[in-house]
Design a protein around this nucleic acid. Structure first.
Lengths: 147, 147
DNA sequence: CTTCAATTGTTGAATATTCAATATTTTCCC
DNA sequence: GGGAAAATATTGAATATTCAACAATTGAAG
């Protein structure tokens, strides 16, 4: 396994497939945990990014949380309805909208962080500390080289 | 980088995020290439799995190509319309439907395979042979340990 | 300074996905 | 064997995502 794929290699030897497969598994695990709070994974990402307290424009945020712009807009609409985040027009550039977390959003984010950290600890237990660290290093590097 | 995340660690230190990010990048690259043939990545996966010529049930196929059952059913509907695949009721177990590739599907699959292999070669060029092999090994192992 | 292009975010229509419910067939077990 | 439970695939309604078009603001060129 893990050889360079030829035209007739099984799909399981393709990097793109292995990434999709691993991502699906891990994402599902997390999804299951976060369901306790009734929140999709993307909303955890949004809350976490906004947790630095600085305002983030929709564009920045979309990049950071791996969502397309219109998808993010609509997800933010729901989160505003739930009073987790709020919009402020950027005074420096009135095309932009700056997003902030509410107190309610912060409290939720803390609970979600705890669930997420616990998941990763669980992964490390069965998968190993060394492997996890190395995998993360390689993924960062791949992301960097793909840009 | 690549340390065990604490509750207040940035999201970029979470394995789940790194996987989602890397997957998104690589999947987009492939998507762009396959667009030449006007086919989504999932259809390439389906054609490739069916390329062994054996009939695969919808359940098997859904697992293999990382799609939920109803999503697969509807995607297969489209592919049947495009005469890429066809359904045959399993004579051994009439609950099951066995999927097969048509000649047209096979021809398309060959062209898609070529595009996909070329993408992976391109990745290996900029990312390195060693890293790619090691990353694939680790992903396989993670998938195995997650199950 | 004025006009045209680029940037930013949102919207509406088209498309795709998901959840729950259904139909069909098989398996289990008494 | 007969009836309940499990397995398989599909459907329809509800939901979410995407694509293209739009509106608003800023930047840039003449």
């Amino acid at each position: 396994m893990a050889k360079p794929p030829k035209e007739n290699s099984p799909i399981t030897e393709h990097l793109t497939y292995l990434l999709a497969h691993a991502n699906r598994e891990i994402n599902r695990q997390l999804e299951t945990r976060l369901a306790k709070e009734g929140v999709p994974v993307e909303q955890w990402r949004i809350l976490k990014v906004l947790s630095d307290g600085n305002g983030h424009s929709m564009g920045e945020l979309a990049d950071a949380v791996l969502l397309n712009h219109p998808t993010l807009t609509k997800m933010i609409d729901r989160m505003v309805s739930d009073a987790l985040v709020y919009r402020v027009q950027d005074p420096k550039d009135r095309r932009k909208v700056l997003m902030f977390v509410s107190d309610r959003g912060k409290a939720l984010c803390r609970r979600l962080n705890s669930l997420a950290v616990s998941q990763e600890e669980h992964i490390v237990e069965s998968y190993g500390d060394k492997s996890t660290t190395e995998l993360k290093r390689l993924l960062e590097s791949l992301i960097g080289s793909a840009n």
